[in-house]
């Protein structure tokens, strides 16, 4: 029996497989396919203080080995989450993590304080990297002073595990990671989507209502892997790696590059059972290679 447990801040995960925010709803949707308590963690859909309708249709464009999205943080707001969603999921035996969004630092702080009051939410993922909103979002994640200010303000009001989700749309992601580590982040998760664009040549129109959107899927895996590697060389806090993971082999590559846990995202749209398949495959890999613990392969790239 291999030991799949990992630690992220104060959070002890029974295994390193989580779902990525925005690809797995609020739990109930995937629970129609499998027992989600088998997962190490579950990142809930991006939440904001108040209701957001999101962007106009069309919000999605298929691209080679991936897709662009421009959902724009559609969600029913924090009160709806607290009163309607939380009671339904709080007793499921996995770690539910709220993906916290805001257009101002005050909004990030206010939402964090509300989530902090929920006993069964042991961590938040501070999203300073959403590319699909006009205000806030990625603006906080693309330069060090803005990222520092957001993390500092949230850290002041939040004692549980604070994960900061980083944007890949920067010149030097290691620099941003160092900055948020210095402000007390317990972990960084990376990467959010890459800003991209798709055009219909016949109609001569952009395929997304917002013109640009976030690219995800296997198309971004080599880029994400490179960024996880760079960040792992720069910080001591654990990294949660993601970006185009389709199967267990992809996940293993992220562990070798320095991730302590991983998030399975866009592949869920293709196969809702994929988080389970990735988990089973990681276990088989470790058994096959006679490792006792997942920690034996984390950051264990042979050079």
């Amino acid at each position: 029996m291999v030991d799949l447990r990992v630690k992220i801040g104060d959070l002890e995960l029974k295994n390193p497989v989580m779902t990525a925010s925005g690809t797995s709803g609020f739990g109930e949707e995937l629970a129609e396919f499998f027992d989600i308590s088998k997962l190490g963690g579950f990142l809930l859909k991006g939440t904001t203080l108040h209701n957001r309708d999101g962007n106009d249709y069309p919000r999605m464009a298929e691209t080679p080995s991936g897709m662009l999205n421009a959902v724009g943080l559609q969600n029913k707001g924090s009160d709806h989450f607290i009163n309607h969603t939380y009671p339904k999921i709080k007793d499921i035996d996995t770690h539910f993590i709220v993906n916290v969004n805001g257009s101002t630092i005050e909004e990030y702080v206010e939402l964090t304080e509300k989530i902090n009051a929920l006993d069964k939410i042991p961590a938040i993922e501070l999203n300073i990297s959403c590319p699909n909103v006009k205000e806030g979002g990625m603006a906080f994640g693309v330069n060090c002073p803005a990222a520092e200010a957001a993390v500092k303000a949230v850290r002041k009001v939040y004692d549980k595990t604070l994960i900061v989700k980083l944007s890949p749309n920067v010149t030097d992601i290691a620099e941003i990671a160092r900055a948020v580590e210095a402000q007390g982040a317990d972990s960084v998760s990376l990467v959010n989507t890459f800003l991209g664009m798709a055009i219909d040549a016949e109609k001569r129109i952009p395929l997304l209502s917002t013109i640009t959107g976030g690219l995800s899927g296997p198309a971004i895996k080599p880029l994400a892997l490179r960024m996880v590697w760079q960040v792992s060389q720069a910080v001591k806090i654990p990294i949660i790696g993601m970006g185009g993971i389709m199967d267990a082999t992809d996940a293993i590559e992220f562990f070798l590059a320095g991730s302590t846990a991983i998030q399975v995202g866009t592949v869920i749209f293709k196969d809702p059972l994929s988080p389970l398949k990735v988990l089973e495959g990681i276990e088989s890999y470790l058994e096959k290679h006679k490792y006792n613990s997942l920690y034996d392969i984390i950051n264990n790239l042979q050079m």
Binding site: G22, T23, S24, G25, E29, L30, E32, F33, K45, N51, D53, G54, Y57, P58, R59, M60, M67, N69, V71, Q74, I268, F269, P272
Partner: peptide, 23 residues
């Protein structure tokens, strides 16, 4: 027949504005 990615309510891409349920 709106464009969709997942088909089971997690990608939020196939939205249609409605009078009673928003997007």
């Amino acid at each position: 027949e709106n464009l969709m990615a997942c088909g089971f309510g997690v990608c939020l891409c196939c939205i249609e504005p409605t009078k009673d349920k928003g997007n």
